[in-house]
Simulated scan of single mutants.
Amino acid sequence: MLPSSPKPLINTALQHQHKWRGRIGLTLVASLSVLAGMTDAIGFMASGDFVSFMSGNTTRLAVAISEGDLGLTGRLTLLVATFILGNALGVIISRISKRHALPLLLCIATLLCGAAAWPMAEQLPAVLAAIIAMGMLNAAVEQVNGLPVGLTYVTGALSRFGRGLGRWMLGERRNGWRVQLIPWAGMFVGAVIGALLEHQLGIKALLVSGLLSALLGLVSLKIPRRWHLGYMPR
C-alpha cells in the first residue's frame, strides 16, 4: 500500500498559518489605530490642529488660503509637510532597523512623551513632534495578508468597505472588505479614549499615547519575524 501524500497536511498547515498571521496582523492594526485615534483626539482638542488626519488639515489649508489668512496658511502648510516628513522617517527607521517594529515604536513613544512634556505656552513644537510620530506610525503596518491597511487615516478604509459592500449587494463574494472596518473602529475607540484623557490632562495626555506605543513595541516582539516582514513596508 502506497503511503498517503503529505501535500494535504502541508496545505492545511499553511492555511492555518495564513489564518493566524491575518488575525495577529489585524489585532496589531486595531491596536495601532487606537494609538492613532487617541493621539489625534488629544492633539486636536489641545491645539485645534489634527495630528494624523491630514485630509482635515488640507481642507483647512484651502479655506485659509481662500480667506487670505497668511498665518494659518503657513501653520497648516508646515503641519502637512511635517506629516510627509514623518512618513519618510518611518520608512528610513524601518529599513535601518531591518524592519523590526520595536525601534520604530520606541521612536514614536519618545516623540509623544517629549510632546507631552513640552511647556504649554509653546505648543507648536509639541504638535509637530506628535505629527512626526503619526507619520512614522504608518510604517509599522502597511498590509495584512495582501490587504492594504491605513493606521492614521480611515477614509480609504471606509471607501474600500463601502465598495466591498456594493459588490456584495450585487452578489459578488470577495474576501477582505469587511476587515476594513477594523482600523476605523480602532481609531474611533482610540479617539473617544483620547478625548476623555485630554479633558483630564490636556496635552500631557500624549504621555499615555507614548506609553501605549512603547507597550505595543514590546508586544510586537512576540510576533513571528517572518510575519512581521509581511506587515511592514519593503
Rank of each mutant, 00 (worst) to 15 (best):
G210S: 05
L102W: 12
Q200S: 15
A62K: 12
W118I: 00
G43N: 02
W20K: 15
K222V: 15
H100N: 14
Q200R: 12
A195V: 03
G190A: 08
S209L: 04
W184F: 14
L211T: 09
F188C: 06
L147R: 09
W20G: 08
V149S: 03
L102A: 14
A81Y: 05
W168C: 07
V189H: 05
L211Y: 03
L76E: 01
G48W: 09
T73C: 10
L151T: 02
G68D: 04
R23F: 12
G156Q: 02
G202L: 00
S5Q: 13
G171Q: 14
L128R: 01
G202Y: 00
L211Q: 08
A157N: 15
C107Q: 08
P224L: 08
A129D: 03
L221G: 06
L221Q: 15
E142Y: 08
S4R: 14
Q17H: 14
W177Q: 08
F44E: 00
L216V: 00
G25I: 08
V179M: 11
V154P: 00
I93V: 15
P8R: 06
Q17I: 12
T12R: 07
R21P: 01
N87F: 13
L70N: 14
L158V: 11
L206W: 01
L147M: 11
L105N: 02
P103Y: 09
W20C: 10
L105F: 03
G186F: 03
R234P: 11
R95S: 13
V91W: 08
C107M: 07
S213H: 00
G230N: 12
L181T: 06
M232A: 14
A88K: 07
K204A: 08
I84M: 12
W177G: 11
D49V: 13
T155W: 06
A41G: 05
Y153R: 00
L229K: 10
G74P: 04
A140F: 09
N138R: 09
K204S: 06
L137M: 09
T27K: 05
L147H: 06
G176S: 06
L102V: 11
L165R: 04
A116W: 02
S5N: 09
A101N: 09
A115V: 01
H100K: 09
S220F: 06
K222F: 14
R60L: 04
M187Q: 05
A30W: 04
P233Y: 14
G194S: 01
M1T: 11
L79M: 12
S33Q: 01
T152V: 09
S47W: 05
L32P: 00
L85F: 13
V208H: 09
K98Q: 15
L221C: 15
W227G: 03
G156W: 04
G164F: 04
A13E: 11
A88W: 09
S47T: 14
M38T: 02
